[in-house]
Design a protein around this nucleic acid. Structure first.
Lengths: 168, 168
DNA sequence: TCAAATCCTGACCGCTCTGTCAAGTTTTTT
DNA sequence: AAAAAACTTGACAGAGCGGTCAGGATTTGA
């Protein structure tokens, strides 16, 4: 299980933008310096975020990037999805969609009917999706200042699957 | 965020072994057929599991692989770690270890002192680690038979970080 | 109008991951 | 012994990811 570089670095870049007043564009050069990344790479990441409508660009001298919404209204889930369309937690259903990524070569995935693994992935996926749906850029900024919010965000938001823990 | 192919397929293979009585070796050929994978690939996966001490091999005609412990005593966390040493959730500390994977080029990671992102990764990591530490191969087999156990396994096992959810 | 600052885009290179191939070793059976 | 069934190992090819490069377009300011 891996976090991709695009997710990590892209999230850092958009968080940099959140530190500036709305309407004040921040140049790629500045973000790159602050994060220790190349300007070309930061550009690539911001393009992904722009295509997702999370940031917008202003060209020419004194141009740069700004958020399209206030940090309170930008969800971590949307940022991560913009940076990796095939994220683990981004599968709409608990059905065969989850199997499609690792099909094997059989006509039908061996596990379609009696799979013990898929429900685990699915529950985990739901949980992660829920957590990232409750965290905004504003939360991350508050966390930077030591104002922890995570305990609340990490609480499961729903019943997942019926309990039935018999003896060993 | 991604689940690697090795994690997915390796987990499936060891779960196949769990379906057989202890001491009865299962050949690579048989597992490969059941999962729709090539024998060479299944071999590669089982070697990883063997090196981690989770399965053992018996050579020669009528040989194959068996579990080294009963399914009740094989944890999903150990299987996944055997299949991907660099898993997201397998970082011992919440310190700079988590940053080391995505350092950027600065002398010191920009985020060492005031990082709003790392605490999120760390909390999530702890949660996932905890979940996988409570799920055994026996659980997965019960799940196959429709005896759900997941709700209990998905419950957070500990306080994560101090609550402090102020307004907006 | 020219230079500078800035964003835009696609091609590209190297590395890791995925999965295969090939040659070899061990054990059983006949 | 010889053949067959099985595991062992390392090399390797293709695809995808991570990150760079080069050339172009837009805007501002002198």
């Amino acid at each position: 299980m891996k976090i991709t570089a695009q997710e990590e670095y892209g999230l850092r870049c958009i968080l940099q933008l959140a530190h500036y007043p709305p309407g004040e564009p921040v140049s790629v050069t500045e973000i790159a310096e602050k994060e220790g990344l190349s300007t070309d790479y930061v550009t690539k990441l911001l393009v992904l975020l722009r295509r997702a409508g999370l940031v917008e660009s202003i060209r020419g001298v004194n141009g740069g990037y700004t958020l399209t919404k206030s940090p309170e209204n930008i969800l971590m889930i949307d940022v991560l999805q913009a940076l990796d369309e095939d994220s683990f937690f981004y599968h709409e259903t608990g059905g065969s969609d989850l199997c499609r990524q690792f099909p094997g070569k059989l006509e039908e995935c061996t596990h379609v009917k009696q799979c013990g693994i898929r429900p685990v992935w699915y529950s985990l996926m739901q949980y992660i999706y829920s957590v990232f749906s409750h965290i905004t850029l504003a939360h991350l900024m508050r966390e930077e200042k030591g104002k922890e919010f995570l305990n609340k965000a990490m609480e499961p938001q729903q019943e997942l699957i019926q309990i039935s823990e018999g003896s060993g």
